[in-house]
């Protein structure tokens, strides 16, 4: 029973982690809370729905299409809406992300209507049994895909040239640009990766809960953001840890009888962690300087 809940929690947590990574990478480099990120996740899910019909129920092609389309979307948004404001006061940039978020949500509502729609079957749902343990094949796919994507991300960040540039930019933005790193390219790339992961999350969650709606990105985005803060915003392993922790906390909270307060669990955890460790579990402490 306990193991069962852990599996459920990890599945939920893996999807939070996928979205949280986008928040944390962008924050790490330009200190921006990108509130439109949850809506990229939503758009990814909708593109997934469209792609299923196009590719005759091929799961991997569906996933790849959604990811690719969201890469284009994410990079375009950054180029058009965020880049002109890079030297503006930070609060303005924040409000711009909210403007983009409202725009995307209404756009999808106009296009598809506000009601949730189901996700066409793309994966066969088989219940697997290992001893007393029961889990669906969809859960297994979610876990496997998420782990594969996160390993891939770690590889990019640790061992490629652009990954090194990303790390340098998150260490010190101005110095990195003085060292000849093309900062605009790094930022575009960060948005590209973040959007791709969010789109993957969107497709996986759409399949898991069999529901896609224009407002699905609001709560999921906020919670993923909480996950990023829990782990220490700006810290990539932190986002993964935060996502998994949050998923576990929610599943166990519901199991303990707080189901009506499910959405408050994440935020209570957030405030408690912020008070005990103001920069999250794996975050570096802020230094106060004059």
């Amino acid at each position: 029973m306990l193991l069962q809940q852990i599996i459920n929690g990890l599945t939920l947590g893996a999807t939070y982690a996928l979205i949280a990574l986008g928040y944390t990478m962008v924050y790490g480099i330009i200190q921006l809370i990108n509130f439109a990120h949850g809506d990229i996740y939503m758009i990814g899910a909708f593109i997934g729905v469209a792609a299923v019909a196009l590719f005759h129920q091929n799961f991997f092609l569906t996933l790849a299409t959604a990811m690719l389309a969201c890469v284009v979307l994410g990079v375009t948004i950054e180029r058009v809406a965020y880049r002109p404001l890079r030297r503006a006061p930070r609060l303005n940039l924040l409000i711009t992300t909210i403007g983009v978020s409202i725009f995307l949500e209404t756009f999808m509502t106009v296009l598809k209507g506000p009601q949730p729609t189901g996700f066409p079957t793309v994966l066969e749902n088989v219940t697997l049994r290992v001893g007393t343990l029961e889990f669906s094949s969809i859960q297994l796919v979610i876990l496997l895909v998420s782990v594969a994507l996160m390993v891939g991300l770690q590889f990019i960040v640790k061992y490629t040239k652009i990954g090194k540039a990303m790390r340098a930019a998150s260490e010190d933005y101005d110095t990195a640009s003085l060292m000849g790193i093309n900062i605009n390219r790094v930022i575009s790339f960060t948005f590209a990766i973040g959007s791709a992961l969010a789109a993957a999350g969107g497709v996986l969650v759409g399949i898991y809960f069999n529901s896609v709606s224009p407002y699905m990105g609001v709560t999921a985005g906020l919670k993923a953001f909480v996950a990023a803060v829990l782990g220490g915003i700006g810290n990539i392993p932190g986002a993964m840890l935060g996502g998994l922790l949050l998923g576990l906390a929610e599943v166990f909270g519901v199991a303990a009888g707080f189901s009506t307060y499910k959405d408050a669990i994440a935020f209570t955890l957030l405030i408690v962690i912020l008070l005990v460790r103001p920069t999250g579990l794996l975050g570096r402490p802020i230094q106060r300087k004059v």
């Binding site: 809370i33 803060v229 408050a264 935020f267 912020l274 008070l275």
Partner: peptide, 28 residues
Amino acid sequence: IPVLRLTGDYLGIATLGFGEIVRVAFTN
């Protein structure tokens, strides 16, 4: 009293969390 020790974005995030908690509490 507890939260204003935080600075910058972290304060914003904590108050955002409080806002959501209040909303869920009123719903229940």
